[in-house]
């Protein structure tokens, strides 16, 4: 009898790892968020073109930017259209922001509420990674457009974030971002984002368009389209306030 119990115990111990391999363990929430960021931008040092289309009732506006990234600390945005905005630059170093106007020829310190355009906040356009600003917690599962989705709750790393919390739906099988809701510190829903299309850039599957809807004024929406993702590594000095006039 003792031999039989020992054999059963050995068999159970031997099968346990097989059981865990047969269903791959789900990564933790922060790892899922990191994989979501890979779909938004797989590179740390890059440039990418961003086109913004604003739809307000029957009126449309279009803007074009080029975003330069320098690791997780610095992002620079070059205004390329319309003509009235050419030559302007916007620098974001962690939570500090400046805008450079060619006619004023100097960087001007700005606060997060000073917007670039439409429903997209400065961070929406310049930041291409959630993990820089938020920590994640897996809060449940859901179904979105017949896709199984994991629901993440993202909390801002500091109180001054444009959005205090973000609720993010992620495809369960691939960790592609599907949609997100952005909340103020008061708990009010500010806007919704839909990760509409995906494509291949530099051999990686990435988000190519995001639609942002104003939660208070549903007829106001902004579509951000990404293209020309390129690996570029500029010296750190170029991502500083004092360098803004030299780009």
């Amino acid at each position: 009898m003792r031999k039989l119990i020992i054999k059963i115990a050995i068999l159970v111990m031997a099968l346990t790892p097989l059981a865990s391999f047969s269903s791959t363990p789900r990564p933790d929430a922060d790892e899922i968020l990191r994989r979501v960021d890979q779909y938004r931008n797989p590179l740390h040092f890059f440039s990418v073109d961003v086109d913004l289309k604003l739809f307000h009732r029957d009126e449309n506006d279009e803007f074009s930017f080029r975003v330069y990234g320098n690791g997780t600390d610095g992002n620079l945005l070059e205004f390329r259209a319309p003509a009235a905005d050419k030559g302007k630059y916007y620098l974001m170093l962690k939570d500090d922001m400046w805008i450079y106007l060619p006619d004023a020829s100097r960087p001007i310190r700005i606060s997060p509420l000073q917007r670039l355009a439409g429903e997209a906040s400065n961070g929406d356009v310049v930041r291409t990674a959630f993990t820089v600003d938020y920590t994640a917690e897996l809060t449940g599962e859901d179904t979105v457009d017949e896709r199984k989705a994991l629901v993440l709750s993202l909390k801002g790393r500091n109180a001054d974030m444009s959005y205090s919390t973000v609720k993010l739906w992620v495809a369960a099988e691939s960790f592609e971002p599907i949609q997100a809701e952005f909340y103020a510190l008061s708990g009010h829903l500010l806007k919704r984002a839909y990760f509409r299309t995906f494509g291949t850039m530099l051999g990686c599957r990435v988000v190519t368009s995001i639609e942002i809807q104003d939660a208070i004024r549903p007829d106001h929406k902004t579509v951000m389209t990404y293209s020309n993702l390129t690996s570029k590594h500029y010296p750190a000095k170029m991502f500083s306030q004092a360098y803004l006039g030299r780009w």
Binding site: D96, M97, R109, I110, S111, P112, L113, D160, S162
Partner: peptide, 12 residues
């Protein structure tokens, strides 16, 4: 000097 406080205020 210049610094931003919160989301809205800049002092210089």
């Amino acid at each position: 000097l210049s610094r931003v406080f919160g989301k809205s205020l800049e002092l210089h």
